[in-house]
């Protein structure tokens, strides 16, 4: 839960420390991915290469430049008017398991 109103933040892309295998395990856990030991090493290397590339941007002097949230300055907004929704059959069409007009999902476990 973010608190209060804070100064605008940007993604912290400038990471000066290389990722470790433990970081990769944590990211995989958050993404619900199961990686083999070999994959963990592979992705650690690949992600570190990516970060190195992105880090080049850190060389640009951004002192006093306000953060940009989006490259487009368009005002996309719509009127509060209902539009037709999908029929229920179509919404459920691709679901692997359906019951009583609902998507059926396996037992939920926390974490």
């Amino acid at each position: 839960m973010p608190t209060g109103r804070s100064e605008p933040q940007t993604l912290q892309v400038v990471i000066h420390m290389a990722l470790t295998v433990d970081d990769i395990r944590q990211i995989a856990r958050l993404a619900r991915l199961e990686l083999s030991a070999e994959e963990e090493r592979l992705f650690t290397d690949q992600l570190n290469q990516l970060i190195e590339q992105v880090e080049e941007m850190g060389q640009v002097d951004t002192e006093g430049v306000p953060p940009m949230y989006h490259p487009l300055a368009t005002q996309h907004i719509r009127e509060d008017k209902p539009r037709a929704s999908m029929p229920q059959e179509k919404a459920l069409d691709q679901a692997p398991d359906v019951e009583a007009g609902c998507f059926r999902v396996p037992k939920i476990t926390e974490g």
């Binding site: 509060d80 999908m86 919404a91 007009g101 998507f103």
Partner: peptide, 20 residues
């Protein structure tokens, strides 16, 4: 009247998965 990011109805008690 409608949802925040799309034009589906914001309505309580409708048949499941019909305002999608």
């Amino acid at each position: 009247e409608t949802k925040v990011w799309c034009g589906c109805k914001n309505e309580f008690g409708a048949e499941p998965n019909t305002n999608v």
